[in-house]
Amino acid sequence: MKLYDLENVRLQCSDRFTLAIDAFTLAPGERVAIVGRNGSGKTTLLRLLAFLETPSAWDRFTYRDRPYAPGRMNRNGLGFLRQQPYLFRGNVAQNLAYPLKFKGVSRREIASRVEAMLAMIDLAPLADDAARRLSGGEQKRLALGRVLIGEPQLLLLDEPIAHLDGHSRAVIERLLHGNGIPLLVTTHDLHFAHRVADRVLNLTAGRISPSLPENVLSGRRTGGVLTTGAGLEIHLPPETAMQNGNENLMVMLDPRSLVISPEPLTSSMRNCFRGRVCSIREQGGNVWLEIDCGERLTAIVSRASYEELALNLNREVAVSFKANAVEVL
């Protein structure tokens, strides 16, 4: 049995792109992380899998081997955590009790399970506090506790650690590590993705790919410059550059933010490298170029630009991008 089995599932997310899942499966016990930029369709994908969105077309879409039927899918056992959870009126303990109340669990059992969960999410001292007055991290822990108290058999978590302090991150990671429940989690944080998941997938413009996101580079930061393993010196955005000290860092470059030119440009762009085109492929009406600058960088250009620049394999080009185009992971 597979928890999910999708083939050629389409859903119009916005005018910009369509969520297009060519093939995706989730096996029992499997833990998968989806990484991708803002607006890549991560939340929509989770909502689709929680049957909160209706696909416009699909060849195969099954949940626990049952074919998808709009408006008639059973969500029993499915735990869903929003990126910005909605907490009900009332205090922390009352919020935790709701899933059990909805299931008709006895008052005595609710009390004992709520008490245990309060300890697990490290909110026992705040049990009587108004849920909506908690800090962002506490609210996220409460929301995750409220999902877990219902004993789900599958977790769909949307950015569970985004914008959280270290303590809340640690509590959430501990909870996720300790339960062994099959998991599909979206995140920006590659390290977190690898820690909680067995498989990390990339979602770019609504398409899942098995590889990591394009242009993920790691290296050592010294002041405002990151030196990659291959010796590429990348100027970082000012907010990162202003931080003191040296550290190991992972960064990502949007392939669309890379400017390709035959010769190095005189411009405000702080990063400029020479390299050779080592791969060319066409996808979604654009041309994807892989350029070897010591590190392999992927750039996306329009078909018209590709033709105007007369690009071909082994052609030497310059790759430029702003320091602000570097996303620190």
Partner: peptide, 24 residues
Amino acid sequence: KLVHEEATLLGASPVAASWKVLSE
């Protein structure tokens, strides 16, 4: 929509979810 969806995801029946919306 948010409250109804949240209550439904937490296991509320359609009637219980609607009641939750009104009580919120």
